[in-house]
Design a protein around this nucleic acid. Structure first.
Length: 883
RNA sequence: GCCCGCGUGGUGGAAUGGUAGACACAGGGGACUUAAAAUCCCCAGCCUUCGGGCGUACCGGUUCGAGUCCGGUCGCGGGUACCA
């Protein structure tokens, strides 16, 4: 009998699918459509085991839906613009384009042997001029509709390299290459008006029933709708034009506890005052030397500078408050100015204590709940109860002494509006999406700067505006910092599309999030000469199941939702595609143990004298033998002087990282065990939304199991046992497995489905049923496994005389009548602890169950002649006796 | 800092508020074999005076009943608007 040999069967079936065009997406007959999409990869160089897991999940869904009678669209492409290509060019020469396309070739070559049911004819990369040219067309349409505009915004500026840095290129406030402290620099940049749709993007989250709640919560918090009061403090002896400072507050109810006004270092008033105040100018300059990230802002020590300027409290003109410039106030949010109420905000309280400002409580815990409460003015922490909690008001203006924060806020807004102090307003935290990047390897922004006409959109017939490959006849030099488009000898020079005079191209390129905000729509008609083909988009959109990492919960998914709306407004998508992803699933990572040993590394110090440094030596999995959870070296290690057999430290479940030598290469796994083993393992060991740890023993076990399934099937095919009285039991078990596995696949419970398949394989292996029943069971097993292990399943299907390709065979249906059990085992609890069980007919009335329970030994013993306090019978589930 | 998750045997994990540990790995025992590999079968949370007791990161609460719900703490992970 032949053995399971993935190396021969996998290429065979891949060829068969390709020949039969099995996975080509077609609009065939009147079948319903199903669009399944995994977030497309960045072409980093090689595929990663995490990719294998992600695409296997999508493939399971795609194959399952196809077998359930859907026209399936399951495409693949590459998110191919971005910084790593430029970094590679900087580090080792070469051109981002060559690097990127080379990587794509490699990765496609690695993905094909995995047997994914993908329609490769639709593949594209976002750096293809055919793709980004259509993106430029979209940009022009967005511009025409007023969805794009220009304004000034801050970037991280490296003053030594004279270049703009990405946030990840800023390390501890310094440029990653130059080491120079970064500065903030203001540039005119392009923005998408996503904030116009804040309310809509927030409200529509409620319609996304098949999105994880956590993702919706994250987006809702990110958009951040708040209701508050906008009003102005009038200033005393302020510079011309600054007689008022507009502030926005979500806690107008605490206005009587205000003790200072804070403005952003980028506030126009700060910029005015620093002109005549060198100390203030030094302070704001210091503030502007911070990275632009929210994290850096929030984690920095909260500092302020007293401008000396005073404002009047809106309720009492005799009450004056100082105006501070404070480093934690963002110019982008609200009005860039706040009032501080130290009693009810910990940050304001820290600030007040630092600068010796008054602390005045406006409310305290409700009567009877004071407990050990200490007022903030008496040294306690800031008192910040939930807004829904009723508190005792010390300084209400028009509400009861006992009221919730919520009620007080509304009352305060109402009071302020009636007294002409301000306006109730709704604001959002969401800022407009800055899309300009001062980089080469991105989609050029198709506009022209003309001395006469200003900013002019490029003509559509001139698209795509292609990136230049050469520079003065030579490949572009990436060793020089800065944007090569900016210094290119002639790429910038062009004709004004409006007046025809010499003009200059925009040299900013687009954020790569733009590329990934509409690729899903492009897949519906990837070769169309317009961004989309409406008929195709109408048929295939929306994405029925989208699968990707939780790291994209906010930006990518929010931007895509915005883009879908923009594309509807510009006629590129039907109205029904407003929410482009019907269902979302966020999968976990694949992790792997790190094997390491700390040792003293000998180094030469500055004087050339030998010195030692404690460091780690990381070992590759191939260098390690694992026994009973402990790791030992296979060979001697010269560097650390360790010998073969010496133990090394194991750090389990670590994120795979090249520098920690704990990456596993999918290609090595395929050559050792085959693609089906890799696919089976990444699904079997962990729930899909959680991380999975890759272990060599787990992969080997998966491989053994597949070999076992093959062997069982081959034995059945070779046998000729007549039917027996066990046929019925096996048939029943087969239908139960169909039911359980179907439920598992439908609910993304792949690991649970696989556990059922293990159980069923054991049952089948032990069954003494006849050939007919066993053949049906084995064919069903092959079908149920086929979305996960498609090659093995095809092989078994063929072996057992299945018709055509298993990939085309209809998914098995469980016979409901076979699933009914006539009796159930009821566990008996006494005071919530399990003390025994009884076997009863499924529909036995409660009263009879109670009788049986009271007669049960354990219950009689526990009652000790008394009567139960309570007897709870949950039909078909459990019985609990309270004594 | 802020927002969102996660935490169960030696390991990965299972469990609509209802028998905690399914299924698997590693481990132990056995069968087959001259032997090994491969394969097949069985055992197994921890402690125990063998009555039972303890157990789902930690502390507390709700409930007849909590891994699951609520409050707090600790640890880890993701995001934090120019990494993708």
């Amino acid at each position: 009998m032949s053995r399971y040999d993935p190396a021969s069967i996998e290429p065979k079936w891949q060829a068969a699918w390709e020949e039969a065009l099995t996975f080509k997406a077609t609009r065939e007959g009147d079948k319903p459509k199903y669009y399944v999409l995994e977030m497309f990869p960045y072409p980093s160089g090689r595929i990663h085991i995490g990719h294998v897991r992600n695409y296997t999940m999508g493939d399971v869904i795609a194959r399952y839906k196809k077998q359930n009678g859907f026209n399936v669209l399951h495409p693949m492409g590459f998110d191919a613009f971005g910084m790593p290509a430029e970094n590679a060019a900087m580090a080792s020469g070469g051109h981002p384009k060559d690097w990127t396309y080379g990587n794509i070739d490699t990765m496609v070559g690695q993905m094909k042997p995995l047997g994914f049911g993908l329609d490769w004819s639709r593949m594209f990369a976002t750096c293809d001029p055919e793709y980004y040219g259509q993106q430029q067309a979209l940009f022009l349409d967005f511009l025409e509709k007023g969805l794009v505009y220009r304004k000034n915004a801050m970037v991280n500026w490296d003053p030594v390299d004279m270049t703009v840095l990405a946030n990840e290129q800023v390390i501890d406030g310094c440029g990653w290459r130059s080491g120079a402290p970064v500065e903030r620099k203001e540039l005119t940049q392009w923005f998408f008006k996503i904030s116009d749709k804040s309310g809509e993007l927030l409200d529509a989250l409620d319609t996304l029933d098949n999105w994880p709640a956590k993702v919706k919560t994250m987006q809702a918090n990110w958009i951040g709708r708040s209701r508050g009061l906008q009003f102005a403090f009038s200033t005393i002896d302020a510079p011309e034009g600054f007689d008022r400072i507009e502030v926005y507050t979500t806690r107008p109810d605490t206005l009587m506890g205000a003790s200072f006004v804070g403005i952003s270092p980028d506030h126009p008033l700060a910029k005015q005052l620093e002109k005549d105040n060198a100390d203030l100018a030094a302070f704001t300059a210091e503030c502007r030397k911070m990275a632009t990230t929210e994290e850096a802002m929030e984690k920095a020590e909260k500092k302020g500078f007293d401008t000396g300027l005073r404002v009047r409290h809106p309720f009492d003109t005799a009450w004056e408050l100082p105006v501070y410039v404070a480093n934690f106030i963002l110019m982008d949010y609200g009005t860039g100015a706040i009032f501080g109420c130290p009693a009810h905000d910990q940050r304001d309280l820290d600030f007040a204590r630092k600068y010796d400002l008054p602390v005045v409580s406006t409310f305290a815990p409700a009567m009877g709940e004071e407990g050990t409460f200490i007022l903030p003015e008496d040294g306690g922490p800031a008192y910040v109860p939930p807004k829904q909690e009723t508190v005792r008001w010390l300084k209400p203006f028009n509400w009861d002494e006992a009221a919730t924060g919520e009620a007080a806020i509304e009352a305060a807004i109402d009071f302020c509006e009636k007294n002409g102090v301000g306006q109730g307003v709704t604001k959002f935290r969401l800022r407009d999406w800055g899309l300009s990047r001062q980089r080469y390897w991105g989609c050029p922004i198709p506009v022209v700067h003309c001395d006469t006409c200003g900013v002019v959109p490029e003509k559509k017939e001139n698209l795509p505006i292609q990136l230049p490959y050469d520079e003065a006849g030579k490949p572009i030099d990436f060793s020089i910092p800065g944007n090569p488009l900016d210094r290119h000898p002639n790429w910038r020079d062009c004709e004004c599309p409006s007046c025809g005079k010499p003009a200059k191209r925009e040299t900013d390129t687009m954020d790569t999030f733009v590329d990934s905000s509409w690729y899903f729509a492009r897949f519906t008609a990837p070769r169309a000469t317009t961004p989309t083909d409406l008929s195709e988009a109408e048929y295939w959109m929306n994405v029925d199941q989208y699968i990707g990492g939780i790291e994209h919960a906010i930006l990518h998914l929010l931007y895509s939702r915005f883009f879908a709306r923009g594309m509807i407004e510009t006629g590129h998508l039907p109205e029904s595609a407003k929410e482009p992803f019907n269902a979302l699933f966020t999968q976990g990572m694949v992790t792997h143990a790190i094997y390491r040993r700390s040792y003293l590394k000998r180094i030469d110090d500055i004087d050339g004298a030998p010195a030692h440094l404690t460091t780690y030596r990381y070992y590759y999995p191939e260098e390690i033998a694992v026994r009973e959870g402990k790791a030992y070296l296979v060979n001697d290690d010269v560097e650390t002087q360790l010998k073969a057999g010496d133990e090394v430290e194991v750090v389990p479940s670590a994120k795979m990282s090249k520098s920690k030598n704990n990456v596993v290469d999918p290609m090595a796994i395929i050559s050792t065990y085959g693609a089906d083993t890799a696919r089976w393992f990444v699904l079997s060991d962990s729930p899909p939304e959680r991380d999975v740890e890759w272990t060599a023993s787990g992969a080997e076990a998966a491989n053994k199991h597949l070999g076992r399934v093959y062997r069982i099937a081959a034995e059945i095919a070779a046998g000729d046992a007549p039917s027996t009285k066990e046929d019925e039991a096996l048939l029943k078990e087969t239908h139960k497995t169909i039911h359980d596995v179907t439920m598992g696949v439908e609910s993304f419970g792949f690991n649970a489905a696989i556990a059922k398949l293990y159980g069923f394989t054991n049952t089948l292996s032990k069954s003494r049923a006849g050939k007919e029943a066993k053949t049906f069971a084995a064919k069903t097993l092959a079908q149920l496994m086929s979305p996960m292990t498609p090659h093995l399943s095809e092989e078994i299907w063929q072996l057992l005389g299945g018709e055509g390709l298993i990939a085309d065979a209809p998914w098995p249906k469980a016979d409901e009548a076979m699933l009914v059990e006539d009796s159930v085992t009821l566990p008996i609890q006494v005071n919530g602890k399990r003390r025994g069980e009884i076997e009863v007919p499924k529909d036995m009335p409660k009263e009879e169950v109670e009788k049986l329970v009271l007669a049960h030994d354990a219950v009689v013993k526990a009652l000790d002649g008394g009567t139960p306090k309570k007897l709870i019978v949950v039909p078909g589930r459990i019985v609990n006796v309270v004594v």
